[in-house]
């Protein structure tokens, strides 16, 4: 029995290895688990883009909202922009985090392409981005009414991402938030 088992050992090893490699094909190595999931947003106090006033964590709390990290130098942000306009029109509150950008360029972008954001946080140095663990734009965080980060999506938010991932979570949060 033992020698026959030994004969099949290479085959067994191959099958195990192939199973792991096959699984690896469908994994996205860029998708990192966020360290911030189910933890409150970090405290911050940064200027609102194009305004004199400051905005802080308290201004974002109150209802479930999206926090979208974007910049004018980010090509994919332009790709997702029309879709953000669309979901903002459907009534989803979106806050912008203008990440390491030039204020004038950002204002021009919003004037030209439309403004889906409730307000834009001007994070010129990327300090809030650092606290959020942002490593590239675009990134979109789903924050609940208490200011706890519930989900983070790295990359473009398009119809597929919104309908399959973000919207179900958002509905769940707003359903709980309004008591219905």
């Amino acid at each position: 029995m033992a020698p026959r088992l030994k004969l099949f050992l290479p085959l067994i090893l191959f099958v195990v290895l192939a199973a792991f490699l096959f699984r690896g094909l469908s994994l996205d190595p860029q998708a990192l688990p966020s360290a911030l999931i189910d933890r409150p947003l970090p405290e911050f106090s940064l200027p609102v883009l194009g305004q004199e006033r400051l905005i802080g964590k308290g201004d974002l709390i109150g209802e479930a909202a999206l926090l979208n990290v974007w910049a004018t130098w980010c090509v994919s942000c332009r790709v997702e922009h029309p879709y953000l306009l669309q979901i903002a029109q459907e009534g989803v509150p979106i806050y912008g985090l203008n990440y390491k950008d030039d204020d004038a360029a950002a204002a021009r972008w919003l004037a030209d392409l439309g403004d889906p954001y409730r307000a834009n946080i001007a994070d010129r140095e990327g300090s809030l981005g650092l606290d959020l663990g942002v490593y590239g734009a675009p990134e979109t965080y789903l924050v609940d009414a208490e200011g706890v980060v519930r989900y983070r999506h790295v990359g473009v938010v398009d119809e597929r991402v919104w309908q399959t991932i973000l919207q179900p979570l958002y509905r769940e949060l707003t359903g709980q938030g309004s008591g219905g």
Partner: peptide, 8 residues
């Protein structure tokens, strides 16, 4: 660093 970017 880990609290922001994870153990990664």
């Amino acid at each position: 660093m880990v609290s922001r970017y994870g153990e990664f």
